[in-house]
Design a protein around this nucleic acid. Sequence first.
DNA 1: GCGCGCCAACTTGCATGCAAGAATAAATGC
DNA 2: GCATTTATTCTTGCATGCAAGTTGGCGCGC
Lengths: 245, 245
Amino acid sequence: MAGQGARSAPEPRTLRRTAPPPEAAKANLVDLAYEAIKRAVLENTYPPGYQAGEVEIARQLDMSRTPVHEAMARLQEEGFVRILPKRGIVVLGLSPDDIDQIYDVISALEGAAGARIAALPKAERTRIARKLEGHTAAMSAALAAGDRIAWAQADKAFHDALAADCRNGRLSRIVGTVTDQLHRARMFTLNLRPLPTHSAVEHQALTDAILAGDAEAADRAARAHRQQARDQLLPLLRQLNLSNL
Amino acid sequence: MAGQGARSAPEPRTLRRTAPPPEAAKANLVDLAYEAIKRAVLENTYPPGYQAGEVEIARQLDMSRTPVHEAMARLQEEGFVRILPKRGIVVLGLSPDDIDQIYDVISALEGAAGARIAALPKAERTRIARKLEGHTAAMSAALAAGDRIAWAQADKAFHDALAADCRNGRLSRIVGTVTDQLHRARMFTLNLRPLPTHSAVEHQALTDAILAGDAEAADRAARAHRQQARDQLLPLLRQLNLSNL
DNA sequence: GCGCGCCAACTTGCATGCAAGAATAAATGC
DNA sequence: GCATTTATTCTTGCATGCAAGTTGGCGCGC
């Protein structure tokens, strides 16, 4: 077998490009490659340590090296891969320290997002709070049903909405990319830890602060929530000695 | 004059590439282009609204379109330019709303940085605090001498150190790119506003909190400082009707 | 004179060619 | 048998070629 350059993982022969989105931004190959590769990393199709060359990945995606090259530059910028000067591309893992750092960034920014939402006019912030409450309710329901996957999805929906609705595009985008990096670690530990029963309570505290228009309290609630999650996740990772997710 | 594609600004015939850094990361053209273009934007060589094609810029930098293309993708990601699908590249300005958003991000993250530094072991945080005090002293000196440029440089040095020394690489990088965006607006208003005499006091409050190891207070001080700056800058911009810096 | 449509000149997106750098394997001297 | 050097093969970085898309102008019909 000649040019199959994969070196450290069961090699996927092809990578699924995301189904051409119905009416989204016109497809350009760079974004396609970016999304596909990122998903492959997040879903562990490319596990940490996976190493390959641009040609290999380009072949899997059925395109030329150029868009893959540009997508990789972006993914390196965001911390998913590392481009070794003339040796190839390696998928990075997250050390507990990395996760600690990410949580610092997220809690600070989600705090700001919460404060911003709480400072919106009453009609707006009420509408957003209702939406958030919907997600929290979905979490509780999933929790009651013991469905961890659904719980995680509802939790993600809550946080996505928090970031997206704060009327600060830069903040939203930063939170988005940083949150993505946590995905793999959270998924991995989802089945290892007790179901976080009081997440819903913390979400509700944040929602209440927003409803009350108390920016300061919203800030505190959002940050406390993330720090709580970190304090639960990190010891688990360190204890299991999962040094690289 | 035939192919000079500039449409809205006095055209620079060439763009200076940064002097090849002595021993830094090996020069690759993409980074060179990125730095040169970014500097051109920040220093108003490419003012907001400036529009040009990749070929034009590539010619100015004496390289091919490829590295310029990739650098532009990065600059778009960071909000400096907008790539119009098949029509060219336009340099973006900052509206007061943009500046408001940026300050939200920065104050949240610098707060986290301050808290992180304050939580370091005493020896470390003392060393950092001394450095910060040095910058603050330089600010006061420049202020006394009426040298606004020197003041701005010392202020920048203070904030750069704050972000760089917090032991959180992601946070540092995000703060760095976001701060850069403010540069043009701050420079523009530097001569319009009264010299901020109590910046030094606020810096000292932050430094004191770090020395005392009080993360909570450091967080508050850092955020208050940025919000103060915002509250001073924004009304000025709105009043002068500078809708696009 | 006015509106409509076609054409030409630009633009970027992507594929490919070429060369330089880095690692590995081979071959040689000892 | 071992160390050192050399050659081979991979890798990316960048230049360039080509095609598709968009814009603006020119001419034609009315």
